[in-house]
Design a protein around this nucleic acid. Structure first.
Lengths: 339, 339
DNA sequence: AAAATTTGCTTAAACGATTAAATAAGTATA
DNA sequence: TATACTTATTTAATCGTTTAAGCAAATTTT
């Protein structure tokens, strides 16, 4: 890489001190009373030499990198692309850049990424935390690193958070299944300690209860993330079997649903005639499925915006204590026998 | 953010100079002949104080940020998530971080992002260039900024490049349609100046020619990116109309295909019975479609790896001149009437 | 025993910016 | 004319590292 133009070079060319150049190029000529003629000369030279400020040097001195660190859980989730897009756009409006990494749902990777980002002196972090990340979160609190959690929260730790009211959203999904005439509703969710996923369980159970529907324990399937495909296949098969005899399945995430639908296709089970399906989160595939999948959608744009603006407030020392639980958008397809 | 521990703090605690601390923590105790006892003390103090080096300061001095800038075209492409994932993983193996931004296929955004990344002193760039980015590319060459283009190339400018043999891949797609008994094959591609997309046109035309099939001009539809949905809908409708009477459509990208399939669904046209379909690139939806879509897939892992390793070579001053045209993987579904 | 070498550490100058403080003119006031 | 401001500019410290060069003290060589 060719040597870049620095303030020094401009100063030399114009025949003034570095300070003067800095003042002018930072538009401080008024306060610092720089001569008009000189200011013009400096600007001209900067333009002619195509000066580009070295952000690294700037950051070292100002202790501001104008960079947000973003850790997502897995780049293949639809949630991730959506939220990343939203965060990027909003960050840019605030003249911030986003550095980004994926933990792949792995606790060690998460911790490592966090260290990398902090060492790069990001001004703050937006995190989709992994399971068992309590230690890391406590570290951030202790060291007063500005951060916001999204999507997932640890109820025992008081943090800023932007996410969904998962209980309500799940309640709505299940209620829709009931309203379209289904009574034996299975749930496929991850086996997890995540609060937000437990909330989806709670929503399911409460909706069933409020509709005076019995829930058999075996209807509630828990998938091991590391055996995603196999477990989903097995669970789907069981739920539609004679012994369980479910007439509907509620998938707690888009990943689970996509895998489940593949299995249903293989089993030649027709949605919604043989089985109704509702899912959480969106997927391109939902729309293209022969009967578009009814699903609850997270307001990713809004979440991203809120996450960035909250982080900006923290960074700018406005004392913030914000826990937002947004409502989901419910998208009705044809997978529950809607007319 | 609480003040962080610096070398100074360790030096003061142990009672030595900053230089010694730096030597030890960079494992240069041998060359620099640091006393064993002192070295141990320094390490202990660093650990106890939980020292984390300030990468900004390090970068300023060493003129290395260990950061790759990545500009993608649009985060919603399947290509993007795949290649980003691959690049991230490979970069990490080389102890590099990725800063990433999306141009949204917009030339100005692309130029701006490039400037931002360069000002942040990234060690090199991996770029999916937008249309009309020749100026920017020439700028990089002139200023000797290490960079690699992926996916898209400007044949008139000599650059390092990792991409696909799009001609061959398209040829293969169309040949497959012919082999499954189709003769009136339409092509839906973008209206564009991109070389890689023209290559797909060329592959289509040559495959038709080699199979002694006539191509009507109206079978070749060109979609305006800014009217993607409308144009695709209109084109699909025309291709299946009595006047065109196509028995197959080759979609040049996944975005075009997904939109086209939606239209086919709406028109109640059955794939492959009424119409055969082949696409380029992958999409989750292809697998879930009632007849899984046969498509050519880009080897994203390999492309990402090659892009990073090529960039590493350039950064490390190995003179590189590498233009790689990979072969695509052809995934056979059921959308062309395959048995 | 003097000279040369080795060992173990410190000093200080960078990197490229920001910015408080100093300074040197020029102008106004007493 | 001396004094006090104003104006326009420079000097120099600083951010947290790296690293060449310097310098004692200890050890080896002649």
């Amino acid at each position: 890489m060719r040597k870049k133009i620095a303030l020094k070079d401009i100063a030399r060319q114009v025949g003034v001190s570095i300070a003067l150049v800095s003042y002018v190029l930072n538009n401080q000529e008024e306060e610092k009373r720089v001569g008009k003629a000189i200011a013009i000369k400096i600007r001209k030279a900067a333009k002619q030499l195509n000066y580009q400020p070295n952000q690294i040097a700037k950051s070292l001195k100002t202790r501001k990198t104008h960079t947000i660190g973003l850790i997502v859980a897995n780049i293949n989730y639809r949630f991730t692309t959506g939220i990343t897009h939203a965060i990027e756009a909003e960050a840019k409006k605030n003249k911030y850049t986003v550095i980004f990494g994926s933990s792949d749902e792995n606790q060690e990777k998460f911790a490592e990424l966090m260290t990398v980002l902090i060492n790069r002196q990001v001004d703050g972090l937006i995190l989709v935390p992994v399971e068992n990340a309590e230690e890391q979160i406590k570290y951030l609190l202790k060291h007063e690193v500005p951060f916001v959690l999204i999507d997932r929260i640890f109820p025992k730790i008081q943090t800023n958070f932007i996410g969904l009211d998962n209980y309500k959203a799940a309640y709505q999904c299940v209620t829709h299944l009931v309203n379209t005439g289904h009574t034996r509703i299975g749930l496929i969710n991850y086996k997890t300690s995540f609060y937000h996923l437990h909330e989806r369980n709670r929503g399911y159970l409460q909706a069933m209860k409020d509709n005076k529907l019995k829930v058999k324990k075996v209807w509630h399937k828990e998938i091991r993330e590391e055996h995603l495909k196999d477990d989903v296949h097995k669970s789907v098969q069981e739920l539609v079997s004679a012994s369980h005899n479910c007439d509907a399945i509620f998938f707690a995430t888009e990943m689970l649903a996509v895998n489940g639908l593949k299995r249903l296709n293989a089993l030649q089970i027709k949605v919604p005639d043989d089985l109704a399906v509702v899912s959480f989160d969106e997927a391109e595939a939902f729309e293209l499925f022969y009967s578009p999948i009814t699903h609850g959608r997270q307001p990713l744009e809004e979440m991203g915006k809120l996450a960035v603006s909250t982080l900006m407030d923290i960074i700018n020392h406005k004392k913030v204590c914000r826990q937002v639980y947004l409502e989901s958008d419910f998208h009705i397809g044809k997978s529950c026998g809607e007319k």
